[in-house]
Write a protein that binds this DNA or RNA. Sequence first.
DNA 1: CAGTGGTCTAGACCACACT
DNA 2: GTGTGGTCTAGACCACTGC
Lengths: 245, 245
Amino acid sequence: MSELNVPVASFSPLYEQIKAMILASLQASEWLPGAAIPSEMELAARYAVSQGTVRKAIDELAAQNLLVRRQGKGTFVATHQEDDWQYRFLRLAPDSGAKFHLTNQFLVCANTKASPYIANLLKLKAGDAVIHIDRVQSFAGKPIVFEEIWLPGARFKGLDLEALNVWHGPVYAFYESQFATHMVRAEEKIKAVAADEVLAGHLHLPVGAPLLSVERVAFTYGNKPVEIRHARYDTSEQHYENKLN
Amino acid sequence: MSELNVPVASFSPLYEQIKAMILASLQASEWLPGAAIPSEMELAARYAVSQGTVRKAIDELAAQNLLVRRQGKGTFVATHQEDDWQYRFLRLAPDSGAKFHLTNQFLVCANTKASPYIANLLKLKAGDAVIHIDRVQSFAGKPIVFEEIWLPGARFKGLDLEALNVWHGPVYAFYESQFATHMVRAEEKIKAVAADEVLAGHLHLPVGAPLLSVERVAFTYGNKPVEIRHARYDTSEQHYENKLN
DNA sequence: CAGTGGTCTAGACCACACT
DNA sequence: GTGTGGTCTAGACCACTGC
């Protein structure tokens, strides 16, 4: 007797389905960054499962930094506007161990068309509208970071140099409050490069000086890429920190 | 009426205590890398708690990559000798996306005394015995990585160039099988530097070429630092990859 | 005080690997 | 089939927050 089992879609536990539903609500902005989501009991009722199952789903989303649990208060949607999250993605630190405070100077904010390279990374078509930003960041008066940023024009319509200069704080908090776009994760590719004349000028270094080149793609909910950055760090007095587990 | 609460030692859940006991067993080599630990039921009996509590302890240790769960088989002590863990800490990847296979050439393996800098990182005293290794790694025949390694002499007594050259495979698997030392995590500090004459010679590059400098401290159980590495990568055709969450 | 998340238990049943 | 980890439930109680 043949055991012709239908190749069923692989088993998916309940809590994974709950995770997916919570994710869908986040993506649909049903609950906004910084706001509390319903209590575990309420969600258990809503999805008709036990509290323990909701708990496991929330646990995993919290481990991915999408939610933040606060005992006695509730569970909240992660936000870049909290003090301790302001520099969640910044891996640069001074060699001295001193406290790091970077000052921002935005140089350019232009509406242009996506190059094939940028379009590919942002999952747009070459020629689609993109916004291109240049900035320099300084520490203790010394320029340390030169950064180029590309954003999809549709999502960030209306962004201009004025708005950037008025804002004080991390760019990701700005995106969140002005463009309803929360960054969930990012990927970086790092190389060592020599400063060309432009970079040397911005960072007050000789041409040929070694710089850390950091290319980042940042993603919102649903693995959607919505920001490209290409930074160059002067690492003579600071370094990029990474933990391997 | 005064509320003079004694400042009690802060609350510590049962599963944290179980975690600590399992960790102690790992550190004491009661269970060796690659071996199965007792089943959840057995551990629950041993510690006189419910299976659920053991489960939560193991879950967290597995999340830290100290243990590996395999459904239907058991829970195992993590090891660098498994195929998919061979390059767990390697973040370098070819720009082309090609498969990466590095060949090793060990140049030096000398018994020396710790400089103050190395002693500090390894938590030794300056002048204590350390082993110093130099190697070059190549990809497709091209030298890409020059790496210096420092190890505490006591733990790695007897390590020599012969042993390194006989070994085929990742260094961390070598440490594990020959010196009963399993690496649990590492921290890296990354900079861009210019090649000096020595580096330029090893990597077949002009003096002054930009290189990625990666300083790593690797830790065994109990947060004990047991290896220092200082690598220089030629990143002209490869890059360092990092994920931010 | 009530409401939230956090811990712990006991038990049932499922999925998977090996023999 | 037996034993392992994986899922799900229901319920009790603890710890923390804020009214």
